[in-house]
């Protein structure tokens, strides 16, 4: 059962990392235009070089 001493903190940490990542996406406005972002990926205009 000693393994729990590692596993429980690890699972909590992973959950926390997920939460922080989600908070980051909300704060950087990544949910403002879900439909547009889904379509933009099909656009080949900036395939060769990134948009300046």
């Amino acid at each position: 059962m000693e393994v729990l001493a590692y596993l429980i903190p690890i699972s909590l940490l992973l959950g926390g990392v997920g939460l922080v990542a989600f908070v980051y996406t909300v704060r950087s406005n990544q949910y403002e235009d879900p439909e547009g972002d889904a379509r933009r990926i099909l656009n080949d205009e900036w395939d060769d070089k990134p948009k300046p």
């Binding site: 909590l12 959950g15 939460l19 989600f22 909300v26 949910y31």
Partner: peptide, 17 residues
């Protein structure tokens, strides 16, 4: 909207754990 989304996320991650 963001506030609700944040609460939703906290509830979601906590309930997973």
């Amino acid at each position: 909207g963001r506030d609700l989304l944040m609460r939703l996320a906290v509830a979601g991650f906590a309930s997973m754990n």
